[in-house]
């Protein structure tokens, strides 16, 4: 449902802000001309198993925004104690009080930055994925290698297959060919996400 009223007024401003004054490593934009559905990306923070990965997220802005928090989920699979296999994120600021800690002082940019921080510092006390949380606490080396492997498999910007191919337009002898190949895969990366359905999720709920 397209936004109206306060939500639309605020989203117009927010989109300008997130675009003109972006926070490091995050970006967000409208899918179509409708500010209620946003796409976003988070670059995996350096020094974490998610480094060099580009994670795509989807944001759904409720009609009562900013009095209610947006719904945010990962579209790129991620191996993380607080993010389930459907991409749902366990983070207190994504829920309304008294259960959560959302306030209208937060916005799309600060939420994405907080999620990026959660990627750097998983919250083992509030694990959503019991197995991963257990592993994160008791066998950090195994957790890191699995998370890194997961990142390389699903979130590597250059490792996607899909549209658009440009081979036909450039001759094989072009000196640019080599760099072209890496660029082309970068170009196509945003459009080639796994089409995952939100139904295959585990039945765990975020407990707090």
């Amino acid at each position: 449902m397209p936004l109206s009223g306060v939500a639309l007024m605020r989203m117009k401003k927010e989109l300008e802000m997130v675009y003109q004054d972006p926070s490091p490593g995050v970006s967000a934009w409208m899918q179509e001309d409708d500010a209620s559905e946003l796409d976003a990306t988070i670059e995996g923070p350096e020094g974490t198993p998610y480094a060099r990965g580009l994670f795509k997220l989807r944001l759904s802005i409720p009609p009562r925004y900013p009095f209610e928090p947006p719904k945010i989920s990962f579209m790129t699979p991620i191996y993380h104690p607080n993010i389930d296999s459907a991409g749902r994120i366990c983070l207190d600021i994504l829920n309304l009080p008294p259960k959560g800690a959302w306030t209208p002082s937060l916005n799309i940019s600060t939420l994405l930055t907080s999620i990026r921080l959660l990627m750097s510092e998983p919250n083992a006390e509030d694990g959503l994925m019991a197995d991963i949380t257990h592993e994160y606490v008791h066998d950090p080396a195994a957790f890191e290698s699995k998370a890194r492997e997961h990142t390389q498999r699903h979130a590597a910007p250059s490792k996607s297959t899909g549209e658009p191919s440009c081979d036909s337009n450039v001759s094989r002898s072009s000196p640019l060919r080599d760099s072209l190949i890496t660029t082309t895969s970068k170009v196509s990366e945003l459009s080639s996400l796994d089409g995952r359905s939100p139904k295959d999720d585990g039945k765990r709920q975020c407990v707090r």
Binding site: Q31, D39, K186, L190
Partner: peptide, 8 residues
């Protein structure tokens, strides 16, 4: 290396 970010 180019990376486009934004609406498709």
């Amino acid at each position: 290396e180019l990376l486009f970010l934004g609406a498709d």
